[in-house]
């Protein structure tokens, strides 16, 4: 168990380092002068020199990389060129929005996907099963941003129940929640399409196993067998997909924030691109990639919690 933990943790840290190398390389090694990118073609030579000095561009590449990592570990991502405040401050301001969106999105994704997936498996080859499969097939093909637009047209433009976008801050919690309903639904619906299919096929696989028959022979109700015996055993592949879906969830959050004009990290990253604010973009890309890698790490650890057989082997 201890050996397993250490090996996985080392692997996790190495992956994070490798990811940081990729991010740094793409943002710094590829041809192009960051100072010129930031200031534009009409900048004076003096201004360019000053910026290069500030960004530390005159130092060797390796030094710059280690400096970036060293500072980042301590929470210092440099100064945002466009906002003229530390990038960490910007991230701190916008992180709550992105986290709430992602967590709420994942929460509803799990509820919808597990209910539909298990429900479909329980009605295998019947009407309900086909319905779920059809909906999820469509759900996989629908772009999240288009679904968002459709929802806005229906609930904001036509019915006027919910705001079409924007966010007035957390000071009015009810208004804040109302602004987040449509984004969360859009995020969850699209994500749950894939997960519902995985849940269904995984549950069908488990339902063929002998212990399910044993549970039925013990006089347990179908519902109890499904949720207490089938679902936990179906979870391993589901958790794998949930881990992989974190990449999609991160992407989805970035897209959804831009569809609904929500002031989160995804919106910030696009403002930074428009402002040619390279340090901010670099920090945010690294952050998002780190979230994906961390999610996969947590999934690895979760397997052991779910399956006692792995504990013995680990």
């Amino acid at each position: 168990m201890g050996y397993f933990l250490i090996r996985r943790t080392v692997g996790f840290v190495l992956t994070l380092l490798a990811v940081s190398v990729v991010v740094f390389a793409v943002m710094n090694v590829l041809p192009g002068d960051p100072a010129l990118t930031i200031l534009g073609l009409d900048a004076t030579e003096d201004a360019l020199d000053a910026l290069r000095e500030q960004l530390g561009l005159n130092q060797p590449l390796l030094t710059r990389y280690f400096l970036w990592i060293w500072n980042a570990v301590q929470g210092d991502f440099g100064i945002s060129h466009s906002f003229r405040v530390p990038v960490s401050t910007l991230i701190g301001e916008r992180l709550p929005m992105t986290i709430s969106l992602a967590v709420a999105g994942m929460f509803f994704t799990l509820i919808i996907a597990l209910t539909l997936g298990i429900g479909a498996a329980a009605r295998h080859r019947k009407f309900g099963d086909w319905g779920v499969m059809l909906i999820s097939q469509l759900g996989i093909a629908i772009p999240a941003f288009w679904l968002s637009i459709l929802l806005v047209m229906l609930f904001a433009v036509k019915l006027r129940w919910l705001p079409p976008g924007g966010f007035a801050g957390w000071s009015d919690p009810v208004a804040a929640m109302r602004s987040l309903i449509l984004p969360t639904i859009s995020l969850a619906l699209v994500q749950s399409a894939v997960l519902a299919r995985v849940t269904r096929s995984s549950a069908l696989e488990v339902m063929r196993q002998d212990f399910v028959r044993t549970a039925r022979a013990s006089g347990l109700s179908r519902r109890r067998v499904l949720w207490r015996h089938v679902l936990p055993n179906a979870l391993v592949p589901i958790v794998t997909i949930v881990g992989m879906q974190f990449a999609a969830l991160v992407t989805g959050t970035i897209v959804i924030e831009n569809v609904f004009y929500l002031p989160g990290l995804g919106r910030l990253i696009f403002q930074s691109i428009a402002n040619r604010d390279l340090p901010t973009v670099q920090a945010l890309v690294m952050l998002f990639a780190a979230i994906v890698v961390t999610a996969n790490f947590i999934v690895d650890l979760l397997y052991v919690v779910i399956d006692p057989r792995l504990k013995a082997r680990a």
């Binding site: 990729v22 990118t37 990449a247 973009v281 890309v285």
Partner: peptide
């Protein structure tokens, strides 16, 4: 190759757009 899974297409496109313009 596994490393590539840490980068959704969107993140990669964001990096490229930031450096070279969209």
């Amino acid at each position: 190759a596994d490393l590539g899974f840490a980068f959704p297409a969107l993140l990669f496109a964001i990096m490229l757009a930031a450096v070279f313009g969209p």
